[in-house]
Design a protein around this nucleic acid. Sequence first.
DNA 1: CTGTATCCACGTCGATACTG
DNA 2: CAGTATCGACGTGGATACAG
Lengths: 134, 134
Amino acid sequence: MSPRHIRHTESGCLAAREVLKLVGDKWSVLVVSLLGEGPLRFTELKRSIEGISQRMLTLTLRGLERDGLVTRTVFPTIPPRVDYALTPLGQTLQEPVRALSAWAETHREEIQAARDRFDGKDAKKRTARGAARQ
Amino acid sequence: MSPRHIRHTESGCLAAREVLKLVGDKWSVLVVSLLGEGPLRFTELKRSIEGISQRMLTLTLRGLERDGLVTRTVFPTIPPRVDYALTPLGQTLQEPVRALSAWAETHREEIQAARDRFDGKDAKKRTARGAARQ
DNA sequence: CTGTATCCACGTCGATACTG
DNA sequence: CAGTATCGACGTGGATACAG
């Protein structure tokens, strides 16, 4: 795994990879997006996302905290209360992410059409070879 | 898996998720970026990326082709020759992706600092509890 | 309430070998 | 040259149970 082959600055591309991976994460972007509208408690996040497990929410938040994108504030009360909020850095991430989401929304139908076309041709090929599956 | 909980339009968020996943993919963005400078053959791509296996390059290209981001042109010669190129749709994707990469580059050091801080505190906590690992 | 720990199913990826 | 097929290792995510 020599990272020498990647164009331009090596560290820049490694950073890009990591951020891209973060963005590709199943929950991170959603959490950041929710916190973009204000701080939330653990349970509030869990309820807002609803498909997420406790484990995954914890892991996601830890990762975001580690990267300096969210802050974790513990109130040592009983029962305990923990607030999560976006850092300034986390807020700046929202802009490029929103740009990407906008792109997705804009080209959603175009992509879907391409997929249908591709899958259609693929099905034809398979049936032509006599092995119609499904 | 009821997709009812996601905010705003359901299809929009599903589309965003899929694009985010595509962007988070280990190779897709790299391939799109390379094709952004002009069409390339299969082997040229393979050599340019170098860390990628034949299998992964094939799968990546099929996925991009399916989504209508790249075209696959076969020249029925011997030996065979296949050119891959970005579609107009694929080209438009480059802009938001570059914005995200720029964000990564800009905040690279900031993120690294946050990680060091976090990992440092984590290590301290662990040693304080008497279980210094590593 | 806010986690942590454990287990397991699943998908993804790489290595390798083979084909047209 | 440009793939496809197969296999095994690995990481990721969900369910569940338990703890502070």
